[in-house]
Design a binder for these strands. Structure first.
Lengths: 195, 195
DNA sequence: GTCTATACCAAGATAGAC
DNA sequence: GTCTATCTTGGTATAGAC
């Protein structure tokens, strides 16, 4: 029977992806060369172009799939009934999802300006979709009188900014467990949006 | 009497600085070339080296003076007596100072990894000094029973992350005045750290 | 599918004329 | 103090042998 020609074709692709992820996160998209990525993978620079059309596509691919995974993971969760429980669930989900993917998150926030206009628009739309889920929770809560914020859009951005901050300091070996971090942030978020 | 030779020597320096500030903020340090900076100033690339030893020094200079101005501006303010008023003052100061310097702020947060180890250490020390001022306010407030946070260090980082978020969305022509923004954020911060 | 080789261009930085 | 010219290095991307 026909052998698949080039048996690691399905392994080199992912390895390129992982190398780009790591290097972009560490040094920044603009500072990383195709030669560096190739070296990390263990191939010559020219070989990369059998898997990716160009450098920009690598960045866009990483950001796009990160955002799509975020939305998919969120969609899978059963939504609690009341707004307070939904907010609590969102906070826990956000912290855990983001702490599990520090490199993707870092790139998603730092490299937006290195996307072409077209790619930026697409990534931005996904980000908005995610933010809107939090805003909907806040709007419901305000309507029900359990939350009290003067502007749900700003409260949304404020809460997300605060939660994203966890990624800048959290270390698995640090003094706080994930559960403790989640509890501390939930405490602050809950109070910040309280009626 | 002796004419100063090259009468715009004292104007070219600042112009180089401003050009670097703008370009680094817009495209990122790694993506900007010395030739681009020179073009913006209106000189040839080689001429830049009469003012700056190298590209790294330009980045470090911008970040260092930003952080020193931040600490100096903070030191000038008379500190209110009680912790609640000090926190309110901090929130207002932070938002206004940062919104007045969007480019410096953006660079200070995005380009840390492009500093050499030595320069990073220095900038990081200045940043810590600023954070410590907020943490001291929170610690005092907790000791006095007016604030209730389980961990002042984390609360410090959370509040700063939340406040920094303003720079990502605020536009002078937008629907909210600076006073309104300040009020909304003060409301959330006050509640988040409340006892 | 990966290699070597290379086209082509731009980077940071320096030298020396004016 | 600025210019032009240049050194050296390294960038993205492609061509064609194997």
């Amino acid at each position: 029977m026909a052998r698949t020609q080039g048996s690691h074709s399905d392994i080199t692709g992912p390895r390129i992806r992982k190398a780009a992820l790591r290097l972009f996160a560490q040094y920044g998209f603009a500072a990383v060369s195709m030669r560096q990525i190739a070296k990390e993978v263990g191939v010559q620079a020219g070989a990369l172009y059998n898997y990716v059309p160009d450098k920009q596509s690598m960045l866009f691919g990483l950001m796009q799939s990160h955002m799509e995974e975020l939305l998919a993971a969120r969609a899978e969760r059963p939504a609690p009934r009341d707004a307070m429980e939904r907010l609590r669930d969102f906070v826990g989900f956000h912290i855990r999802f983001h702490l599990e993917r520090p490199e993707e998150v870092f790139i998603a926030y730092m490299e937006l300006r290195n996307l072409t206009d077209e790619n930026f628009t697409q990534v931005e739309a996904l980000r908005r979709a995610y933010e809107n889920q939090l805003e909907e929770i806040l709007r419901d809560g305000v309507a029900q009188g359990v939350f009290g914020v003067p502007d749900t859009k700003i409260a949304t951005l404020a809460v997300i900014a605060m939660l994203n901050g966890v990624n800048t300091w959290y270390r698995r070996e640090g003094r706080l467990s994930l559960d403790e971090v989640e509890t501390i942030y939930w405490d602050m978020v809950r109070k910040a949006v309280a009626a």
